[in-house]
Amino acid sequence: MTDTPLFSVKNLVKHFPVHGGLLQREVGRVQAVDDISFALNPQETLGMVGESGCGKSTTAKLVVRLIEPDSGRMELDGLPLSRGRAWDKDFRRRVQMVFQNSFSSLNPRMPIASSIAFAPTIHGASRTKSMQRAMELLEIVGLDPSLYGGRYPHELSGGQRQRVNIARALAVNPDLVILDEAVSALDKSVEAQVLNLLADLKRDFGLTYLFISHDLNVIKYLSDRVVVMYLGKIVESGPVEAVYGMPRHPYTRALLDSMPSVIPGKRSDHAPLTGDPPNPINPPSGCRFRTRCPHAEPVCGKAVPPLLEPIGSASQQTLAGHEVACLMHQRGSGHSQAPEGEPVREAV
C-alpha cells in the first residue's frame, strides 16, 4: 500500500433541508451525513455497512459528486476536488458507480451494448472503438456478446443486468468503483456469482472498491477494511479482522449479533437491538447511539465521542487502524467502563 490514498474524504457534511408548513419554510434538516472522514487506498476494498437511512447512499452520491456536500474536503490522488472540478472529465472517468436497481440503471430503450458503449463515446472514443470495447466487456463479465449485445434490458435476468451494469461502469477504465448495494437485490446464488466476478475484476483491472451494503456477510467476504455507520456518523472503522473479530462499539456488536448464522446452535432467539433509529432531523445529543445502547450513561449525552483508537484491556490487542467512537474505549472519558487515566485531548 502506498502512502497517498487514492481517494479520501475529510469532515464531509450533507444536510437536507426539510420544508413544511403553509409557507414552505425550512422546519428542520435531515443530517444524512454528518462529519465523516475516510480514505480509500489504491486497490483495496472498503466496506461500508449500516442500517437503512444511516447515510450510506448519500455518502455514495457525495463520493461520485452527484450531489455537492455542504462542507468537507474530497481528495483524489491527494489533490483536492473543488466545486468547479465536479464536471472534470478526468474525475468522471476515474470514478464510476454501480447502482442497486439493475433495471432502472439501464436505459430500457437501448440495446445493452449501446448502453455500455455510451460512456466511452463521451470520453472521446470513436463509436466503433466503443462498441468493440463493449463487446469485450460483455465477454469479460461472462455474457456472450453475440447473444446478448443486441438485447434490451427487459430481456435479461437480474443477475445478467447487474453484470451489464458492472461492464458499463468499467467501460471507461475507472480506478474507483462505488458499489451501492450492488448485489443486495439479487438472490443468493446469483449474488455469490456476481461477488466472485467483482473479486476477479478487482484483481484483473487493479480496481479500488467502495462497497456499500447492509449485509455483513457480503462485506466480510469482499472487504479489506470496514466502516460502520450509524445515523450519519462513522461509529467504528478498521481492518475486517479487527471489526469482525473484536468489535468495540456496542452498535457494531449488535449488528454482528444480528447476523443470521448458518450454525443452528449459534442462533439466538432474541433481537440484539430493539426499536428504530432516532429521527435524523433531531438526532440525540452526544453519542447518537445512546438511546438504544445498553451501556449508555449520562456522560454519553454530553459530547460527540471522537473516532479514536480503542484502549482495551491487556487481553484485547488492538490492530492497527482500528478506530471506534465510543467513550467506553477512551481513557478517562468519564464512562464507568472506560479505562482509567488522562483523557486524550483532540487537537481543536
Binding site: 461520485v64 452527484l66 464536471w87 472529465k89 468522471r92 472517468r93 470514478v95 464510476q96 458507480m97 447502482f99 436497481n101 432502472s104 440503471s105 439501464l106 436505459n107 448502453s115 455510451f118 460512456a119 463521451i122 470520453h123 451494469n165 458499463r168 461502469a169 471507461v172
Partner: peptide
C-alpha cells in the same frame, strides 16, 4: 438511475 449513471460518466 441510468440518467444519473450517464451524469457520472461525464455526459
Amino acid at each position: 438511475d441510468y440518467v444519473e449513471a450517464a451524469r457520472i460518466s461525464g455526459a
